[in-house]
């Protein structure tokens, strides 16, 4: 049963991911991206990683995909309907080399076999690890995110200030 589900979900992931890069209509591509994200969440569920699956749905299909659709809707419709790509060869080379590297890493890593059941649930363990063992990396990531946020705000602020000045002149 689990294997059938796994192959079914993998099929959906591969097919929808293929559609994401091949569809001419960017809006349809973005919707296919959402299907891909949800199917990946399904794979996480098969691996008993419920927290990861739900966060995947919440963040990727709930926030990131919606932002992508938002950006697509803000562009001109005539431009959206005929997407074209001049760099297919470069993209193919890059993705092929990335795939090879990932494959190499996956093959040469010693994965710890056997999954211990978490006694007090995934959230408890994740929170404890983040706050005790990985506190420094966690804080560093939050500083990076904060910097990105402030950068985005300062960039947009500058533009709007310039526009205001132009209007005044």
């Amino acid at each position: 049963m689990k294997e059938i589900l796994f192959y079914f979900l993998s099929g959906i992931i591969l097919f929808s991911a293929f559609l994401v890069i091949r569809l001419k209509n960017i809006f349809h591509a973005a919707l296919c991206l959402i299907i891909t994200f949800i199917a990946v969440a399904g794979i996480y569920l098969l691996l008993n990683a419920e927290f990861l699956a739900l966060v995947q749905v919440l963040i990727y299909s709930g926030a990131i995909a919606i932002l992508i659709i938002f950006a697509v809707m803000l562009t001109k419709i005539s431009k959206v309907k005929i997407a074209h790509n001049d760099q297919q060869l470069t993209a193919l080379l890059i993705t092929l080399s990335l795939t090879l590297i990932t494959f190499f890493i996956l093959n040469h890593t010693n994965w710890e076999a056997g999954v211990n059941l978490l006694e007090r649930g995934a959230i408890y363990e994740i929170g404890r690890e983040l706050m005790l063992n990985y506190l420094l990396p966690f804080e560093v990531i939050s500083i990076v995110l904060l910097a990105a946020l402030m950068g985005a705000i300062s960039l947009t602020k500058k533009e709007s200030l310039n526009e205001d000045k132009k209007q005044e002149k």
């Binding site: 919707l31 927290f51 739900l54 966060v55 749905v57 919440l58 299909s61 709930g62 995909a65 919606i66």
Partner: peptide
Amino acid sequence: LYILAVSTFSVI
């Protein structure tokens, strides 16, 4: 968390 995750579909 499940309810929060599923309710994002309505935005889509």
